[in-house]
Design a protein around this nucleic acid. Structure first.
Lengths: 196, 196, 196, 196
DNA sequence: TATGAATGAGCATTCATTCAT
DNA sequence: CATGAATGAATGCTCATTCAT
């Protein structure tokens, strides 16, 4: 038995709008992503449509974040499944994020845009969790197991996350960038960096 | 004969406006940094003042970039003067940027905000040069001298630059952050990472 | 044979909505009392619920008026029952209205808000009747009996009604106001004023 | 020598807008008095014109209040000049307010509309002062001199003010109402009411 | 009896920029 | 060197109401 809070139509509309919002935010940046632009992109009749399905702009942006982050974590989970070695886990994590950037460029870019462009502290928690949450825990565990050297896990996790932000920026500017190679390079870089 | 294109008054006004713009962009982000807000911060009478001294918004933003980058390079130059060892040079570079963040938080933050928030390709060249220009050349030279391992200098330079962006973000959120320690951690991280 | 045009459910729903509307109008004023706000207050699912049970906004507002005025007249009838002396009748009338304000603050306040905030002449007749109808007839009768002096009954009735509006305003602003004393003062004031 | 903070043009525009706002608020009520409606009435090009000359809506409304109240106090001052007898002073006060309603119907009506329709406590002080400020002080003084009986001056002042609100309402509905007679009736009413 | 979905018009406010002096 | 005055377009959001089940 299934107790739907929302109808199928409602969910479909929300998805349609959220998807359009992801594209617009990724392409134009958070600041320029207005309701009008999103409506235009989604082929809707008016901005009223968005206001009907989302309480306000932050509600829509949060839906974008949840959607994009879910897709990113899916790619991550698939990539790290079965990996046990700490160093390989770090490599898998970084490469999975870059792979996500390759398969879902708009999604990741939207997250980065919201992270850098939006000021409301509302998104801070979910963004921080996406960027450094798992990663920092992995680094910490690696240190406890003696596989990694002694470094500030917060600093390194932030550095890795920022490097991925930077990769998204470059990928947007250079569509022909070889992201698989880019991911490998980043993974090499940071696996070297965490050695004891 | 007169070599000055601009009078002292003119220059002083431009500096007043540019300084206010730096503060506003750093505090509110590029997207929310309107003429009205800058005028208010600078204590000027109207936005007309800005339009009079700058051709348009991009002209003002470019002046902000030039000013902030000059200050940053000054700190960098002072820090790397006399350093010859390649690894120490990389360390000095990273620590100098974090020191700049510590001594001129608004300046660096404004640059980061423009880099992430502005879309106009107009700023791309000067931003790229500030972020990865020197750094990538140093990494390249280090590889040629056999001091660094073989890695994609563009990727590593971008990673370092992004890590500094991330440091600026964290510093804004956590005013009590020990930036000297943060800089040392980052320098440790990347000097380990570039070893052969 | 069935005389009821409306079922019990229908009536219950209308009452639920009307009661919520009274509260919202009293608290937020006629201008800010939107369907959305009423729906929220009543705990209904959507504004569609209101549109279903009431033809349009004025239909709902009229129901509010009828309901609130009926409650007010009930208090009035109970208070003046048995009172024969003209002067005492005037006193009873005024004190009954203030008592109504004390026992049903939201109801009277809603009526006042509609009276001052709504522009549609639709409500004028019922509002006028509530405010000055009985009162003016009592004053007129008192004059004919020689108990009251010669004054314009319309002016005095309007003054009394307005004084009660003012009492409602003050009561809203000062919840601790002693309304019983306030009613006595008003009754004293106007009984003095109507003396021959 | 005169040090103008504002230019003549600026002042003229503000007056043009304020006057239009008074008319619109008086005719349509506070709730329906939008920038668009005011602009239309004033013959301006766009609502942008209002936003340019007033910080926000409350700034405009406050200007309306100041303007209308100043005009009302001018009429009042002219009427009570030289009147020394307490009872005559009360009569003069009431008749002056009704005269003001007759000579500046839109002005007084706008004040009443703002008083009843606006919720922002911002206007409360200036409105209260206009409605009951002077009046209550006069009543109090009359009691001290033994000319008036013992009553709650706050209640009576509020009753007088409310009666004037009611007069404004009636005058709006009945353009042919003899306001001079109305004022005399109200003055008679309250001078009788305050007798010892 | 109820409701999910949708809508066009309107709201106050902000934006960078321009004209005329 | 400076400014007062003005502007068209856009912003997110709310409004009562209607259509189709």
């Amino acid at each position: 038995m299934q107790v739907n809070e929302q109808t199928a139509t409602e969910l479909a509309r929300r998805k349609q709008i959220t998807d359009a919002a992801i594209e617009v935010i990724a392409d134009l940046g958070y600041g320029k992503a207005s309701f009008a632009r999103i409506v235009e992109h989604a082929g809707l009749s008016s901005t009223r449509m968005i206001s009907y399905h989302f309480a306000d702009k932050s509600d829509l942006v949060m839906a974008v974040l949840v959607s994009a982050i879910a897709a990113g974590d899916e790619v991550l989970d698939a990539r790290i499944a079965g990996v046990v070695d700490r160093v390989e886990l770090l490599r898998a994590h970084i490469e999975a994020r870059v792979e996500y950037l390759r398969t879902h460029p708009k999604h990741l870019r939207a997250v980065v845009e919201i992270g850098t462009g939006a000021r409301e502290p509302m998104y801070a928690v979910v963004l921080r969790d996406f960027r450094v949450g798992r990663l920092q825990r992995q680094l910490h565990q690696g240190q406890r197991e003696g596989v990694f050297g002694q470094f500030d896990t917060a600093v390194v996790a932030e550095a890795v996350a920022s490097a991925l932000d930077g990769a998204a920026q470059r990928a947007a500017a250079e569509p022909d960038l070889d992201l698989t190679a880019y991911g490998r390079e980043l993974a090499d870089l940071f696996t070297r960096a965490v050695r004891p």
